[in-house]
């Protein structure tokens, strides 16, 4: 339908024998009209595409699950839970005073991706990070008490041997950056909403 109205198409009408008899009333008017019509049709065609393109974006039920609420009250000091958030694991850890002290005593110069522990937490003991290794996307170990926690007492990625510390910062191994801190807010003293 759009091709039918393409402005370039006008040339054929001139060659037609009917046009030879009496010349069309006003060629400029017709061209302007054709151009306007074609422009309108083009806008319409683009508008037709929009719902299709839009339908591929996350749907409302997917977006509704884009934030996850976590009840912190059952998590004892030194324990951690893994929650699903946007299809990925999130590590929520209630760190002991010792772990916090450990994380904050590291000089910045020793870090591959320098960041203070304070900049990575909202409340001293609660560390919330996305549990996906920044190297190639494996899930690091260290959540269960029985897991290997790596050389820095945090997390250890078994795929390619990345070691993370108690602030989930990369300390050794191929991962380029620290575990990502997602956006989250404390909705009360014992609950957070991630995302």
């Amino acid at each position: 339908m759009v091709e039918a109205l393409a402005p370039g198409g006008g040339k054929h009408s001139v060659t037609h024998e009917d046009a030879a008899g009496g010349h069309p009333s006003d060629p400029t008017k017709r061209d302007f009209l054709k151009l306007t019509t074609a422009a309108f049709a083009a806008v319409g065609a683009a508008g037709l595409a929009w719902p299709f393109v839009g339908s591929l974006a996350p749907s409302k039920d997917v977006l509704a699950l884009a934030s996850t609420e976590v009840d912190l009250s059952p998590i004892q000091e030194g324990q951690a839970v893994t929650v699903m958030w946007r299809g990925k694991p999130v590590f929520v850890r209630n760190r002991s005073a010792e772990e916090v002290r450990e994380a904050r005593s590291v000089p910045m110069s020793e870090l591959k991706d320098p960041a203070t522990d304070q900049s990575r937490v909202q409340r001293d003991n609660w560390l919330v990070v996305v549990g996906v290794c920044t190297h190639l996307g494996c899930v690091p170990l260290g959540q269960k008490p029985t897991d290997a926690k790596g050389d820095y007492n945090g997390w250890f990625c078994p795929c390619h041997g990345s070691h993370y510390d108690t602030s989930a910062r990369i300390r050794k191994g191929p991962a380029p950056t620290n575990l990502v801190v997602p956006e989250y807010t404390f909705t009360s003293n014992t609950a957070i909403r991630i995302g």
Partner: peptide, 13 residues
Amino acid sequence: ERIMRDVNYGWLI
């Protein structure tokens, strides 16, 4: 029904 409610422009399509 999910198409009708949750998918963007799903009802239209």
